[in-house]
Protein backbone atom coordinates (compact mmCIF):
# COMPACT_ATOMS: atom_id res chain seq x y z
CA UNK A 1 0.00 0.00 0.00
CA UNK A 2 2.75 2.40 1.01
CA UNK A 3 4.75 1.38 -2.02
CA UNK A 4 1.80 2.18 -4.23
CA UNK A 5 1.55 5.64 -2.76
CA UNK A 6 5.21 6.37 -3.45
CA UNK A 7 5.07 5.20 -7.06
CA UNK A 8 1.87 7.14 -7.69
CA UNK A 9 3.37 10.34 -6.33
CA UNK A 10 6.53 9.94 -8.43
CA UNK A 11 4.40 9.52 -11.55
CA UNK A 12 2.27 12.47 -10.51
CA UNK A 13 5.35 14.70 -10.17
CA UNK A 14 6.49 13.62 -13.62
CA UNK A 15 3.12 14.59 -15.09
CA UNK A 16 3.28 17.96 -13.32
CA UNK A 17 6.77 18.57 -14.73
CA UNK A 18 5.50 17.92 -18.25
CA UNK A 19 2.30 19.93 -18.27
CA UNK A 20 2.45 22.62 -15.57
CA UNK A 21 4.02 25.16 -17.97
CA UNK A 22 1.33 24.48 -20.57
CA UNK A 23 -1.47 24.73 -18.01
CA UNK A 24 0.02 27.91 -16.55
CA UNK A 25 0.01 29.55 -19.99
CA UNK A 26 -3.50 28.22 -20.63
CA UNK A 27 -4.64 29.80 -17.37
CA UNK A 28 -2.83 33.00 -18.29
CA UNK A 29 -4.64 33.14 -21.60
CA UNK A 30 -7.94 33.56 -19.71
CA UNK A 31 -6.64 36.29 -17.40
CA UNK A 32 -6.82 40.02 -17.72
CA UNK A 33 -3.44 41.77 -17.78
CA UNK A 34 -3.90 43.12 -14.25
CA UNK A 35 -4.35 39.54 -12.98
CA UNK A 36 -1.28 38.36 -14.88
CA UNK A 37 1.18 40.96 -13.64
CA UNK A 38 1.36 39.64 -10.12
CA UNK A 39 4.48 38.20 -8.52
CA UNK A 40 2.42 35.51 -6.78
CA UNK A 41 0.34 34.01 -9.62
CA UNK A 42 -3.38 34.16 -8.97
CA UNK A 43 -5.24 30.88 -9.03
CA UNK A 44 -8.61 32.47 -8.44
CA UNK A 45 -9.60 35.19 -10.90
CA UNK A 46 -12.53 36.07 -13.06
CA UNK A 47 -11.82 34.47 -16.43
CA UNK A 48 -12.14 36.47 -19.62
CA UNK A 49 -12.30 35.51 -23.29
CA UNK A 50 -10.97 38.93 -24.22
CA UNK A 51 -7.48 37.67 -25.16
CA UNK A 52 -8.86 35.11 -27.56
CA UNK A 53 -11.24 37.65 -29.04
CA UNK A 54 -8.32 40.04 -29.55
CA UNK A 55 -6.23 37.29 -31.14
CA UNK A 56 -8.97 36.03 -33.42
CA UNK A 57 -9.88 39.50 -34.65
CA UNK A 58 -6.30 40.58 -35.33
CA UNK A 59 -5.67 40.79 -39.07
CA UNK A 60 -2.12 39.44 -38.89
CA UNK A 61 -3.23 36.33 -36.98
CA UNK A 62 -6.07 35.61 -39.38
CA UNK A 63 -3.72 36.00 -42.32
CA UNK A 64 -1.17 33.85 -40.49
CA UNK A 65 -3.69 31.03 -40.05
CA UNK A 66 -4.64 31.27 -43.71
CA UNK A 67 -1.03 31.41 -44.93
CA UNK A 68 0.09 28.59 -42.67
CA UNK A 69 -2.73 26.40 -43.93
CA UNK A 70 -1.94 27.06 -47.58
CA UNK A 71 1.84 26.80 -47.23
CA UNK A 72 1.91 23.73 -44.99
CA UNK A 73 -0.91 22.07 -46.93
CA UNK A 74 0.69 22.51 -50.34
CA UNK A 75 4.19 21.47 -49.32
CA UNK A 76 2.75 18.46 -47.52
CA UNK A 77 0.68 17.46 -50.55
CA UNK A 78 3.70 17.62 -52.85
CA UNK A 79 5.70 15.73 -50.23
CA UNK A 80 3.06 12.98 -50.21
CA UNK A 81 2.78 12.72 -54.00
CA UNK A 82 6.54 12.57 -54.48
CA UNK A 83 7.63 10.86 -51.27
CA UNK A 84 5.23 7.97 -50.83
CA UNK A 85 5.92 6.27 -54.21
CA UNK A 86 9.65 6.69 -53.58
CA UNK A 87 9.37 5.11 -50.12
CA UNK A 88 7.37 2.24 -51.61
CA UNK A 89 9.86 1.52 -54.39
CA UNK A 90 12.76 1.53 -51.94
CA UNK A 91 11.02 -0.63 -49.34
CA UNK A 92 9.57 -3.16 -51.79
CA UNK A 93 12.21 -3.51 -54.50
CA UNK A 94 15.40 -2.44 -52.69
CA UNK A 95 16.97 -1.20 -55.94
CA UNK A 96 20.74 -1.07 -56.35
CA UNK A 97 22.21 1.71 -54.23
CA UNK A 98 19.12 1.94 -52.05
CA UNK A 99 21.21 2.22 -48.90
CA UNK A 100 23.02 5.24 -50.31
CA UNK A 101 19.66 6.63 -51.39
CA UNK A 102 18.31 6.30 -47.85
CA UNK A 103 21.38 8.07 -46.55
CA UNK A 104 20.86 10.82 -49.12
CA UNK A 105 17.30 11.43 -47.89
CA UNK A 106 18.51 11.45 -44.31
CA UNK A 107 21.39 13.80 -45.01
CA UNK A 108 18.91 16.43 -46.21
CA UNK A 109 17.99 16.69 -42.52
CA UNK A 110 21.63 17.53 -41.70
CA UNK A 111 21.38 20.80 -43.63
CA UNK A 112 21.18 23.74 -41.25
CA UNK A 113 17.96 25.60 -42.22
CA UNK A 114 19.69 28.97 -42.02
CA UNK A 115 22.16 27.75 -44.64
CA UNK A 116 19.25 27.12 -47.01
CA UNK A 117 17.32 30.25 -46.11
CA UNK A 118 20.11 32.79 -46.66
CA UNK A 119 21.06 31.90 -50.25
CA UNK A 120 17.38 31.41 -51.09
CA UNK A 121 16.75 35.06 -50.18
CA UNK A 122 19.12 36.12 -52.93
CA UNK A 123 17.76 33.59 -55.40
CA UNK A 124 14.12 34.48 -54.74
CA UNK A 125 14.91 38.20 -54.98
CA UNK A 126 16.45 37.57 -58.41
CA UNK A 127 13.48 35.47 -59.50
CA UNK A 128 10.95 37.98 -58.15
CA UNK A 129 9.56 35.34 -55.79
CA UNK A 130 10.73 36.86 -52.50
CA UNK A 131 7.91 37.38 -50.02
CA UNK A 132 5.53 34.98 -51.77
CA UNK A 133 3.92 31.80 -50.49
CA UNK A 134 5.48 29.92 -53.40
CA UNK A 135 8.96 30.76 -52.10
CA UNK A 136 8.22 29.27 -48.67
CA UNK A 137 6.51 26.22 -50.16
CA UNK A 138 9.55 25.49 -52.32
CA UNK A 139 11.88 25.88 -49.37
CA UNK A 140 9.79 23.49 -47.26
CA UNK A 141 9.92 20.73 -49.89
CA UNK A 142 13.24 19.20 -48.78
CA UNK A 143 11.79 18.86 -45.28
CA UNK A 144 8.45 17.34 -46.29
CA UNK A 145 9.76 15.03 -49.01
CA UNK A 146 12.70 13.63 -47.05
CA UNK A 147 10.82 13.09 -43.80
CA UNK A 148 7.82 11.47 -45.50
CA UNK A 149 10.14 9.08 -47.33
CA UNK A 150 12.20 8.31 -44.27
CA UNK A 151 9.13 7.62 -42.10
CA UNK A 152 7.14 5.72 -44.77
CA UNK A 153 9.76 3.13 -45.68
CA UNK A 154 9.12 1.00 -42.54
CA UNK A 155 5.37 1.24 -43.19
CA UNK A 156 5.78 -0.39 -46.60
CA UNK A 157 8.37 -2.88 -45.34
CA UNK A 158 5.77 -4.30 -42.96
CA UNK A 159 3.32 -5.08 -45.80
CA UNK A 160 3.47 -8.88 -46.25
CA UNK A 161 5.14 -9.73 -49.54
CA UNK A 162 2.89 -12.68 -50.35
CA UNK A 163 -0.23 -10.51 -50.64
CA UNK A 164 1.56 -8.43 -53.25
CA UNK A 165 2.85 -11.49 -55.07
CA UNK A 166 -0.61 -13.05 -55.16
CA UNK A 167 -1.96 -9.88 -56.74
CA UNK A 168 0.87 -9.99 -59.26
CA UNK A 169 -0.11 -13.52 -60.30
CA UNK A 170 -3.69 -12.38 -60.74
CA UNK A 171 -2.51 -9.93 -63.34
CA UNK A 172 -2.13 -6.70 -61.37
CA UNK A 173 0.62 -4.51 -62.84
CA UNK A 174 3.29 -2.87 -60.70
CA UNK A 175 1.26 0.29 -60.46
CA UNK A 176 -1.89 -1.66 -59.59
CA UNK A 177 -0.14 -3.59 -56.81
CA UNK A 178 1.09 -0.29 -55.38
CA UNK A 179 -2.22 1.57 -55.43
CA UNK A 180 -4.63 -1.31 -54.80
CA UNK A 181 -2.69 -3.47 -52.35
CA UNK A 182 0.32 -1.80 -50.71
CA UNK A 183 -1.18 1.64 -50.23
CA UNK A 184 -4.37 0.53 -48.43
CA UNK A 185 -2.53 -1.99 -46.25
CA UNK A 186 0.17 0.49 -45.21
CA UNK A 187 -2.13 3.49 -44.90
CA UNK A 188 -2.57 3.52 -41.08
CA UNK A 189 1.20 3.92 -40.64
CA UNK A 190 1.44 6.29 -43.60
CA UNK A 191 -1.05 8.63 -41.95
CA UNK A 192 1.26 8.71 -38.92
CA UNK A 193 4.22 9.59 -41.14
CA UNK A 194 2.29 12.41 -42.81
CA UNK A 195 1.11 13.83 -39.49
CA UNK A 196 4.63 13.74 -38.10
CA UNK A 197 5.75 15.75 -41.11
CA UNK A 198 2.81 18.10 -40.71
CA UNK A 199 3.88 18.89 -37.15
CA UNK A 200 7.48 19.61 -38.19
CA UNK A 201 6.35 21.97 -40.95
CA UNK A 202 3.58 23.69 -39.00
CA UNK A 203 6.02 24.46 -36.17
CA UNK A 204 8.78 25.91 -38.37
CA UNK A 205 9.87 29.49 -37.76
CA UNK A 206 13.27 30.34 -39.25
CA UNK A 207 12.59 29.78 -42.95
CA UNK A 208 9.22 31.52 -42.90
CA UNK A 209 10.74 34.41 -40.97
CA UNK A 210 13.61 34.79 -43.42
CA UNK A 211 11.71 34.50 -46.67
CA UNK A 212 8.87 36.86 -45.92
CA UNK A 213 8.31 40.28 -44.55
CA UNK A 214 4.53 40.32 -44.76
CA UNK A 215 3.41 36.93 -46.05
CA UNK A 216 3.98 35.37 -42.70
CA UNK A 217 2.95 32.06 -41.16
CA UNK A 218 1.42 31.71 -37.70
CA UNK A 219 4.67 31.01 -35.80
CA UNK A 220 6.17 34.22 -37.23
CA UNK A 221 3.15 36.25 -36.15
CA UNK A 222 3.14 34.74 -32.66
CA UNK A 223 6.88 35.32 -32.20
CA UNK A 224 6.48 38.96 -33.27
CA UNK A 225 4.02 39.81 -30.48
CA UNK A 226 6.69 39.95 -27.80
CA UNK A 227 8.56 42.75 -29.49
CA UNK A 228 5.49 44.99 -29.67
CA UNK A 229 5.70 48.25 -27.78
CA UNK A 230 6.45 48.78 -24.11
CA UNK A 231 3.73 47.03 -22.17
CA UNK A 232 3.93 43.43 -23.31
CA UNK A 233 0.42 42.06 -23.83
CA UNK A 234 1.01 38.76 -22.02
CA UNK A 235 -2.61 37.67 -22.07
CA UNK A 236 -2.65 37.93 -25.85
CA UNK A 237 0.76 36.24 -26.11
CA UNK A 238 -0.44 33.29 -24.04
CA UNK A 239 -3.58 33.01 -26.14
CA UNK A 240 -1.59 32.98 -29.36
CA UNK A 241 0.97 30.48 -27.99
CA UNK A 242 -1.93 28.16 -27.09
CA UNK A 243 -3.70 28.70 -30.39
CA UNK A 244 -0.51 27.94 -32.34
CA UNK A 245 -0.02 24.72 -30.36
CA UNK A 246 -3.55 23.36 -30.80
CA UNK A 247 -3.14 21.73 -34.26
CA UNK A 248 -0.07 19.65 -33.33
CA UNK A 249 -1.55 18.75 -29.92
CA UNK A 250 -4.71 17.44 -31.60
CA UNK A 251 -2.65 14.69 -33.21
CA UNK A 252 -0.78 13.57 -30.12
CA UNK A 253 -2.70 10.27 -29.95
CA UNK A 254 -2.00 9.35 -33.57
CA UNK A 255 1.68 10.20 -33.14
CA UNK A 256 2.08 8.03 -30.05
CA UNK A 257 0.52 5.04 -31.81
CA UNK A 258 2.78 5.63 -34.80
CA UNK A 259 5.88 5.71 -32.59
CA UNK A 260 4.79 2.59 -30.74
CA UNK A 261 4.29 0.67 -33.98
CA UNK A 262 7.57 2.02 -35.41
CA UNK A 263 9.50 0.76 -32.39
CA UNK A 264 7.90 -2.68 -32.07
CA UNK A 265 8.44 -3.31 -35.81
CA UNK A 266 12.21 -3.07 -35.53
Amino acid sequence: MKKNLISNSIIFLLILFAITPILFALLGSFKELKDIINPIPKIIFSPTLENYITVLTTDSILRGIQNSTIIVGTSLLIGILVGIPAAYAIARYKPRGSNDLRFFYLSIRFMPPVAIAIPFIGIFLDLGLYDTKTAIIITYLPVTISSIIWLSIPAFESVPKDIEEAAGIEGCGYFGIFTKIALPVASPSLIGAVIFTFVITWNELLIALSLSSRNVTLPVVAASFTSLGFETPWGVINASAILLAIPPLLFVGIIINFIKKYISND
Binding site: P21, I22, A222, L249
Partner: peptide, 8 residues
Amino acid sequence: MPIMLPKV
Protein backbone atom coordinates in the same frame (compact mmCIF):
# COMPACT_ATOMS: atom_id res chain seq x y z
CA MET B 1 2.94 17.01 -25.32
CA PRO B 2 5.97 19.30 -24.75
CA ILE B 3 7.75 18.06 -27.90
CA MET B 4 4.59 18.59 -29.96
CA LEU B 5 4.56 22.29 -29.07
CA PRO B 6 5.95 24.57 -31.73
CA LYS B 7 9.27 25.98 -30.48
CA VAL B 8 7.64 29.40 -30.61
